[in-house]
Design a protein around this nucleic acid. Structure first.
Lengths: 144, 144
DNA sequence: GTAACTGCAAAATATTTGCATCCTT
DNA sequence: AAGGATGCAAATATTTTGCAGTTAC
């Protein structure tokens, strides 16, 4: 399972974001890549507790959010999930507009940055600077 | 200021949602109607501290979220705001799709339920059941 | 070697729960 | 009168901070 995750990929992602490669950062990225879905802070703590202190998890996630490597996604039950954005991993850049797709069956979260957010017509005089969409539904696998 | 907020309006909203009219619920709705913007839990506590216990604020907000009278809105700094949805106040119904507009200048939050969320094209086979949009920008007043 | 990351301990905050009392209908 | 809402006290949980030791480059 973790064999499919390349350490090179992780190192590259970190370096592209001007971050040193450390145990905490590597481990947290591994967890996200293995999971493939958005995780709560609690989930992450659980999956890293053998190797990382809770405080390191807080600080690392904070760093990742600031760098735009991860994003937070609100849930309907009023909690927050952390998601690794795939295309961000690729190019190390942070985009302003985001579409997150969350599968209601398997929980898979996909960051659809490639998707163009359609123009919406707002009341007269309103100016849009940033749009975030959260799309809930069923992913390809679970739709059938 | 609070003179412009009708107690009738508040009572009606509560009754439409099968909720009894109590001090805590009335006071919290007043605060939101006076403010006109989305508020953090901390804001709400502050504005009600003279009359309500902190625990009542927690329980009342929870109730309002369950009834769909209010919604939570994630912010870019990873915290959560509570917003009273205007059209929900009107008809007492909860809609699945939501568009929230947040003015980056004055903080005014508008729940644009009347707005039709445009169809977005997702990867093959994906099914959409609910969409939430958060639009950041400048409201009419602040755009000029 | 130096700057930055990490773990530990502890403080500060935030949230939940139990229960007795009061209010709404 | 009865069920539910509220306040208070206290238990939990969450998040932040300071500092000393360790690691990455």
């Amino acid at each position: 399972m973790s064999g499919s995750i390349s350490q090179d990929q992780i190192s590259t992602l970190l370096r592209r974001n001007q971050l040193s490669v450390t145990e905490g950062r590597r481990r947290i990225l591994e967890v996200f890549m293995e999971a493939g879905i958005a995780l709560s802070h609690h989930d992450i703590e659980e999956k890293t507790s053998e190797r990382l202190d809770r405080v390191t998890v807080y600080r690392t996630l904070q760093t990742f959010l600031e760098k735009g490597i991860m994003h937070t996604i609100p849930t309907t039950d009023n909690s927050v999930l952390y998601a690794l954005c795939k295309d961000t991993c690729g190019d190390g850049h942070h985009h302003d507009d985001h579409v997150h797709f969350i599968c209601e069956i398997c929980g898979t979260t996909t960051c659809l940055d490639g998707l163009t957010i359609p123009f919406i017509t707002l009341p007269d005089g309103y100016q849009v600077s940033q749009v975030n969409m959260i799309v809930n539904g069923r992913c390809k696998k679970c739709a059938a």
